[in-house]
Simulated assay, not measured.
Amino acid sequence: MSIIIFLVIGLIAGLIARAVVPGRQSMGIIATLILGVVGSFVGGLILSFLPGGEPFPSFNAAGLIGSIIGAIVVLLIYIAVRRRSGRTA
């Protein structure tokens, strides 16, 4: 997969995750991109544990959904860590 496509999918996953999770996330476009890329790795890891799942599947609907789910998980962890450290999200 091309690195450009990977970054675009990561950005889309990050934007969707930020839209789904309630509250205000003070993140710029680069932080959203990083959120989506890390979420893609987490989503690929989650999908690899499912029966018949392959680690980091090629680009398909399941991979995109896994990326979005992974980005949501990463965003929720990020919000929890920021709240615990005393910063407001």
Rank of each mutant, 00 (worst) to 15 (best):
R87I: 14
I30F: 04
A61Q: 04
S2K: 15
I30W: 06
G70V: 08
G14V: 14
A62G: 02
R87G: 15
Q25T: 11
A13M: 07
R18M: 13
I34K: 09
I68N: 02
E54Y: 03
T32C: 04
R84Q: 14
I29D: 12
A71M: 10
I34W: 05
V74E: 03
A71G: 08
F41K: 09
G63T: 12
G39C: 08
G14F: 01
L50P: 01
V38N: 09
S85N: 11
P51C: 12
A62H: 00
L45T: 15
P55Y: 14
I68W: 00
F49P: 03
R18C: 06
A17C: 06
I46V: 15
R82A: 13
V21C: 10
G39Y: 00
A61E: 04
G10E: 05
F59M: 15
R82F: 10
L45I: 13
G39R: 00
F6D: 15
Y78L: 11
G10S: 08
V42N: 01
A17P: 00
L75F: 01
I68L: 02
R24N: 12
R82K: 15
L11Q: 03
M27K: 08
A80L: 13
G36K: 04
V8R: 07
I30K: 14
G66L: 02
R24Q: 10
A19L: 12
F6S: 12
G23H: 10
L76M: 11
S58L: 08
L47D: 06
F56W: 07
G28F: 05
A19F: 04
L15R: 07
S26H: 08
G39T: 09
V21I: 13
R87Y: 03
A31F: 00
L15D: 06
A13S: 11
L45R: 03
A61C: 05
T32D: 05
V81M: 11
R87M: 13
V8S: 09
P51S: 10
V42Q: 01
P22Y: 01
A89Q: 14
E54H: 07
L7V: 13
I69N: 02
T88A: 12
L76E: 15
V21N: 08
N60R: 05
M1P: 05
L15G: 09
G36E: 06
L7C: 08
G23S: 08
V73G: 01
V20E: 05
I16M: 04
L15Y: 04
G53L: 02
L7P: 04
G86Y: 07
G52R: 03
A19H: 02
V38M: 09
V8A: 11
G23K: 14
R87E: 10
Y78A: 15
E54N: 15
V73T: 15
M1Q: 09
A31L: 05
V20P: 02
I4T: 15
N60C: 12
G23D: 09
G44T: 15
S26Y: 08
F41D: 01
R18E: 08
I77Q: 02
G66W: 00
G44W: 00
I4S: 07
S2N: 13
V81W: 05
A17G: 06
S48I: 09
A19G: 12
V81H: 10
M1C: 13
V81E: 10
V74T: 14
L15F: 04
I46E: 04
L15S: 09
I12D: 06
